[in-house]
């Protein structure tokens, strides 16, 4: 995967990613535009579809910009919810090299 060598920024997700958090998350991702992003989802207890939408939009955006967008750490709840709603985050998982 071709990615420009820029400083990678980590975004730590809140435990509850509901309707309210969608806007906040959106803003945070917009602020990180132009950077490689590592998402820390280890604290996530609950995530709704709206926040998944925002994250996927963020991932797509990074892909278009050829920046890396990875899930550095994920919680069980995060993985299971994405599985449940048919959103495959495997390709975005940070790979140990």
């Amino acid at each position: 995967m071709a990615s420009k060598k820029t400083a990678q920024k980590t975004l730590r997700l809140a435990p509850v990613l509901d309707l309210n958090e969608a806007t906040a998350l959106h803003e945070k991702l917009l602020a990180l535009k132009g950077s490689a992003v590592a998402i820390d989802a280890s604290a996530v207890e609950r995530i709704g579809a709206l926040c998944v939408q925002v994250l996927i939009a963020g991932a797509k955006n990074s892909e278009e910009q050829q920046l890396s967008f990875t899930f550095a750490k994920v919680s069980d709840a995060f993985v299971k919810t994405t599985q449940l709603i048919g959103v495959d985050i495997d390709p975005l998982m940070a790979k140990e090299i």
Binding site: L19, A22, T23, L25, H26, L29, L30, K33, A49, L50, V52, Q53, V54, I56, A57, G58, K60, N61, E64, I85, G86, V87
Partner: peptide
């Protein structure tokens, strides 16, 4: 299967709208 085709680019999306 989650259909994400309707998802607009990050900077043009409404974070509270339903796209999926």
């Amino acid at each position: 299967h989650c259909d994400m085709d309707g998802l607009p680019p990050l900077d043009r999306m409404n974070p509270e709208a339903a796209y999926f």
